[in-house]
Structures are given as C-alpha cells and as structure tokens.
C-alpha cells in the first residue's frame, strides 16, 4: 500500500478558494481539485465528495473501508469500466484527437491519474437502458428527461433489492435527523449503523472482544493503518471551512482536511462532518446519552 502513496504527494492541488473544496463544477479545470456533489450550484449544498474523488481514494485504501480493514486484507479494484461514452456531434473534437482518447485520458486523470493503482480504464459502448442518453433517444418527443429520485441497492447474495429514497429504505420515511433511531424497516442495510452492527457481529463470530459502548467513530479509528493511509491522501480534519462554505452549512462543526507536514496530501480540502455524525453506538444511542 505504501507503494501507492509514494507518488501521490508530488501532485499539486489547485484550490478553488482559500480553504479547499470546490462547489460542484466550478474550478474543475484545476488539476487535482476536489469537488462536492451535486454539480448544480443551485441545489442545497452537501458535503458528499464527487464520485471520481471517492473512487480514486478507494483505489488506494481498498474497497473494504475502515471497519472491515481490521479483519480483512485490503480489496483493491483491478479494473474500471465506464459506459455512456457516446460520441458528441462533429466539430467538438479537436483535430488530431479522438473522442475515445479524450474520454479515456480525462477519466484516467480524474480517477487515478493522480494516484497509482488500477490497471486502466476501459470504455464500453454497451448501453444501460436507463442512462440519460438512452432515455433521451427513446423519449425524444416527451421533453427533457429528469433524474430519478430513487436509489437502489441490489446485492444478489443478500436477497431482495433495497429501494432507497432520501437515504432510507422503504420509501417515504425520511424524518428530520433526530435522536430516535429510524424504525427497523426504514433503515437501509447500507447505513452506517447497520454496517457497524454487521461488523460487530462478525467480530463476535470470530471470538474477538466486542465493546458495545464504542461509537462508530471510535471503531473506525481503531483501524490505525487505514486511518494513517487515509490521512496520507486526504489530510486530517483540522481547519474550519471557508466563510463561503460556513454560510451554506447547518452548523460549525464541519472541518476541512489539511496535511500535517510540508507536502500537501492530494485530496486535502475534503470537508468532514466528523464525530458529530459518528458518535452513535450500535444500540442507536449517542454516546453521551447512552451513559
């Protein structure tokens, strides 16, 4: 894993503003700039980082995440396949270049040109039936297509697909974030607390000691090697967010990640909500309340 990091700090980070993350598409041309979702600057701000940045960090940290890294060897991505790369109208492509070259170069730059790891990006022309381009082509008379508000997770080995709306399973169950756990049926098996429970369950099966009073944050931070690796690419949450960001976020506990030393980590400028969203125990209590 160390091998993968070595080249990373050489890559400069061009910053969108004085303290880091670039909202949406602004500043994307800045090499290495990280971006938050969504791309549209008129929608409510989120601190979820753009998928190409997340994929790039998985290619270094592995897919298994902090919790499972304590029990599982890292699982690295070997290949990345990208679809939906239909050619644009004539005239858009500069002379001497092909659409495919442009897309591959761009995808490689965004995904791991900044970091070593994967064997390469392959493009596929096989169309996903619900992609924007396919839907546009088959419904050209009915006006502009719109994004689906529904998400879905299907893990064949775990049974039925889960439909996720507003972060909850079973549809319309979203409620204001509160201090009572969502009902069982409404919690996605992909939520932090359910992942945590599955992890603790596994620990128990292999006869490791389980501390029921530990928070999600504490459990994740027991993965020392993983956290060090994460720091190396992202930095540590140490600085307040910029004034522009602060104005858009609901409270003051969000921080921006920065490097400790002289060289800037390639993904410094990540905005994290941190412990505020990770201080729950597996029983669904906030640490302070549970005591």
């Amino acid at each position: 894993m160390a091998e993968a990091f070595r080249s990373a700090p050489e890559i400069g980070l061009a910053r969108g503003d004085d303290t880091g993350a670039v909202r949406g598409r602004n500043g994307y041309e800045n090499y290495g700039a990280i971006r938050t979702k969504p791309g549209r600057t008129d929608s409510p701000p989120s601190i979820s980082f753009s998928c190409s940045d997340k994929i790039a960090s998985w290619s270094v940290l592995g897919l298994q995440g902090a919790l499972l890294s304590q029990l599982f060897e890292p699982v690295y991505l070997d290949h990345i396949l990208v679809g939906g790369v239909e050619e644009p109208p004539a005239g858009v492509i500069p002379a001497g270049s092909t659409w495919e070259n442009m897309v591959t170069a761009e995808a490689e730059r965004a995904l791991w040109g900044r970091l070593d790891g994967v064997k390469g990006v392959k493009l596929t022309t096989t169309a996903f039936p619900f992609s924007k381009t396919t839907v546009l082509a088959s419904h050209h008379e009915s006006g502009a297509p719109s994004t689906s508000t529904v998400s879905l997770s299907f893990v064949p080995g775990l049974g039925k697909a889960e439909v996720i709306i507003n972060g909850c399973a079973q549809g319309s169950g979203w409620k204001a974030p509160g201090h009572t756990l969502l009902k069982d049926k409404m919690r996605s098996r992909l939520s932090k607390i359910e992942m945590m429970r599955a992890f603790l369950g596994l620990k128990q099966v292999i006869a490791q000691q389980v501390d029921d009073s530990a928070t999600y944050f504490e459990l994740k931070h027991q993965a020392e090697a993983y956290q060090l690796a994460k720091e190396a690419i992202r930095g540590i949450p140490s600085e307040p967010v910029s004034l522009a960001w602060a104005a858009m976020l609901p409270h003051k506990e969000f921080n921006t990640t920065t490097g400790r030393g002289e060289s800037e980590p390639p993904f410094a400028g990540w905005i994290v909500g941190g412990q505020r969203y990770e201080s729950f125990t597996c029983a669904g209590f906030l640490k302070d309340e549970g005591r």
């Binding site: 929608s43 989120s46 994004t147 998400s151 893990v155 996720i164 979203w174 996605s188 505020r276 729950f280």
Partner: peptide, 23 residues
Amino acid sequence: ISIGTGVKVLPAARLPPLGDTVH
C-alpha cells in the same frame, strides 16, 4: 456482487446523528 443505482445525496442539513440514513 453488488449493484447500485442513484444520483442523489442528502444535503448537509439533513445528515443523521445516529447513522441511520445513507448520506
């Protein structure tokens, strides 16, 4: 092994303190 579809994220103001919704 695992398939996901979706294009939505929760706004920062809607993040849950108990880890019970997917951000």
